[in-house]
Design a protein around this nucleic acid. Sequence first.
RNA 1: GGGCGAUUAGCUCAGUUGGCUAGAGCGCAUCCUUGACGUGGAUGAGGUCACAGGUUCGAGUCCUGUAUCGCCCACCA
Length: 1146
Amino acid sequence: MSELPTTYRPADVEPAVLERWLDSRAFHAVPDADGESYAILIPPPNVTAALHLGHALNNTLQDVLVRHHRMLGRNALWMPGTDHAGIATQTVVDRRLQQEAEPSLTDYKQLEEQGQGGREQFVAKVQAWKDEYEAAITDQLKRMGCSCDYERQRFTMDPVCAAAVREAFFQLFKDGLIYRGKRLVNWDPVTQTALADDEVEMREVDGAFWYMKYPIVERDGTETGEHVTVATTRPETMLGDTAVAVNPGDPERKGLIGKLVRLPIVNRVLPIVGDDYVTMPDAESSDVKAKYASGFLKVTPAHDPNDYEIGFRHERTISETARHVLINVMAPDASISTRHGWPEDDHAQADDFLRDELVGKSREAARKLVVDWFKRHDLLEDTRPYRHSVGHSYRSHVPVEPYLSDQWYVAVTAPINRLPDQGTLERTKVPANSLAGLALRAMAPDQKAGADVGDGVTIPGRDRAAVAEDPDKPLKPLGVGEKVWEGHLRFYPSRYARTFQHWHEGIRDWCISRQLWWGHRIPVYLLAFSEDSDFLERFPKYLDAAGVTDRVEIRAPDTTAEPYYVASLDAESDAALEYLARFAGKPLVDTPMAHSRSLVEARGHDFSHLEGLAKEVAQPIFYLEQDLDVLDTWFSSALWPLSTMGWPRPEDFPDAIPEADKLLETWNPTNVLCTAREIITLWVSRMVMFNLYFSDPDLDPRSTKQRLPFYDVFVHAMIQDGHGQKMSKSLGNGVDPVDIIHSHGADAMRFTLAHMTTHTQDVRLPVDLVCPHTGEIFEPKYITTNGYKVMAPTQESPHAPGSRMVTSYGVSSGQVQASDAMPLARNTSSKFDIGRNFANKLWNAVRFALTRLGEAPPPGGADVDYALADRWILSRLARTVRLANESLSEYEFSRYAQAMYDFVWRDLCDWYIEAVKADLNDRPAARAVLATCVDASLRLLHPAMPFITEKLWEHLNAIVPERGLDQLELPGSEVLVRARWPHVGREWIDEASERSFELIQQIVAAARQVRTEHTVPPRQVVDVSAKAPPAIAQQLLEHTELVGVLANVTPREVGPRVDRPSDAAAAVTGDIELYLHGLIDPELERGRLAKRVEELTSQVDRLQGRLSNENYVSKAPAHLVEQTRNQLAAAQRELEAVQEQLEALA
RNA sequence: GGGCGAUUAGCUCAGUUGGCUAGAGCGCAUCCUUGACGUGGAUGAGGUCACAGGUUCGAGUCCUGUAUCGCCCACCA
């Protein structure tokens, strides 16, 4: 095999192997193929950036599973795709535009306001970014060897997924599970957008507590002369106060509940309400809140989330006096304003100070003015400095303002009226027939706290022994006719089931609207009208006339001024609505409407028949427009298991979905979802709810159509950097897997990642740099920003002073750019050495096997004359196959990797190959066994290390086309990716041979130890004799050659009565005394034997102690006591022998 | 504030129903350029399993508490 280099060079192998897989469409799955279906959906990576090692881990594990099941003969599909990641992507693109001093979001917003299509232009920019990163991500996946069906790749905003989003939204809307409501959002007053919670940075700020006095008044408004003192960090929001709260358990203050106060400046009358949210003051308390509290809490529902809750708990009381619960006192730029939700009848009664001084001022200015006003009027009791954390916008870095706005919601705890009322679930108030109820009922009962495991539902579970024996036929998790969604969702590790359960038990309605441009625009049209009250009655007729038949209309119940919502389902209806909106609708508010007719018509719809209607509709003053917001990214991700399979109508997309027929039936549910724990709530939960809800259009509780999106959820560790910080894009400490592929190879990376995957939460991965000038690896310099340790943006080469480079952190944070003089340094990590070394070891083992087998191929026949080593390695192989099956079926990747490592390196290379090296040419059996072991090793390792095994398979096929032993079939396959997983039955486990071989190993180790100690050159052959009890001596005599080869000794006498030659060094191991002739060195001897005496003495003491403990003898299991006795006897015998040897030396 | 996890050899980590004389890889020390592999081979040193109690014949493993680090969720008048 001269063409195989002596070290494995991944870069020479990987591209060709990948090409071979892709050319042969080895990853493509079709519904009608043979084998039970098996499917995994990729958690679609965000198109915000390229993948990092966290993704590499996630995808490696999925690939291990998919490749394993494909080899088990199952019809395996791994569905790839990417997520549009609304907020994240929009922000990343905007930031990049800003960095490059190009027109950015604020500029496009201006364009949009001027009616110049800014929205479309900006979305095009994001689309370009998406195209770039989607391609990069796909390339990375391929280079990692991920066996995704790339012909089926989806994107959460492509037409197929968009159709699913529309259908899902419409169904929910029709069922009354989508509604519109007000809510406080995190508002960034500078960029004037709402922010997601995770876009809010908490920062410690030096602020103050102000103690402000509100006068108590009688019903008729006269002041009593008394006052209450509220404590606040935000005095300016007092303008929007609609109540004052005290704790009803507060003995000093509860008497004031029901009294009234007059709000200074505004002159609004507020009720004092009792609410146990209020902290009672306690100057001595360690609780900061209690320490600063006054006992009176000002309630500002429109400007504080907690106050919002309190406000609505006391809605009636507040309405009686303050009239309005919600009073918004700010404009979108956070300046004081009476025009954004502050009713006229309320602010009219305010002091002139409000209009003359406050209105139009910023929050900060207003704060000062309000405080001064209170001071001037002797209503400021105290000011105390206070350091607290305040949410800041991560984009504009100003404090976020809780700001009231209209949002769309999915009602997750409302009963689904298509399902019969089944009451509420135990322990919770969640109705069983709600979305959250469905999710809770889907949990495996044995993983669910408070569930009655014994009641009705059978838990399929897994029989580990059965899986180990025969993984080809894994136990099906479902019984015929069972309601599939009752109790089969299973988490690995099981602790994550609790996270899932708690989340659903305390779940709140899901806000699905986002004030963004990048995403699925909410498919709802808002109609507002005024003056012509008949219009509302006529409008449905217009819709009918326009052909918008398949629609749902919702009219806000309370007031005619509120909008009226229409959602349509089919494309034709939707286009008609859009047409009406664009040509007939006149905006009541300042929204842009400059769209071209061609845009609609370009989609192939003809609306000439609507022109007359449009004119008629346009007569009254009304406003019809599609909602400006987009859907939460998770809305489309929640549909991933359905949309990727073409739901609801795959036949609509013949070009986008190959072999669309039966896609859903075949691969929904999928088998396992493989993900990190951070999105159990955000994503897993919602997929479960949606898949159950949408998989059966009738939601018939007796049907078996309701399907889970997946049965198993495997949650793997998060990769942290060397400092224990999460590896993430936003932190800029992510490592590109391609860097590791450069330094170590894809297989090495994959093997190491699998090897790291235990059931723990986090794994740490220290990162080094590769100097682009010299190629050497060094530890980078770090800096600290925002409390995080990150690589300094630029680094100096440690051994080429003056040569500089930039780091990926420097580039991703926009601080530096790579250039010829300062190239980008790739990352690497010595963590991956284990994988690289292992790949190299495998390479060389197979290389060796191929040379020898090439000279004299193994026989094919049945009459094989096995030697001990042959039987031993086959037994080890059988155990390894079992261990691999068992581990992989339980998602224990580390155990699988470790088993492979031990078998290939320790058993096969260190012992078996060394044992048979010399007589491979003479013994056909050894050749057959070696070929078998190599073949099986490649198969077993293929899921973890696909490239190298595929390459070696090619060579193995060329040189040894016929492999396998009698009754151990290894069916041939041209490509390994499609080969069968080895089946080595338990009949190959040979305990007698294992014991015999272990005895040999023990003796060889002892002999080597003595040799090393006496510094015998490795090549020098030493005569050795041994004294051992007859049975053992007999075994040894049968295998003297084996010992001779492995320890490089010449065996002489073996027997129960062998004497120690006077010039021999002695070693005692178990019941065997080993004499290595010609090595006498009393000093060394004495030292070693004395040490052994010490070890044995302490062991004997310990064992004797245990046995002299009556409780142990009586209470411990009998076999353990027996074992202890045997151990003691053995230790005593050995101790005696050692002492004898020691005395003989004296 | 609620929940979860970690703490085992210099480093990174195993240790799944308590039976352990606590393992691996890297690193370290000594030796070996032996025809598969120096990304290798042989041998060795290195740990009171974070701390304090408890349960048990027996605790790295179970329970309680403490400390430190990390993550998730909620929130900070």
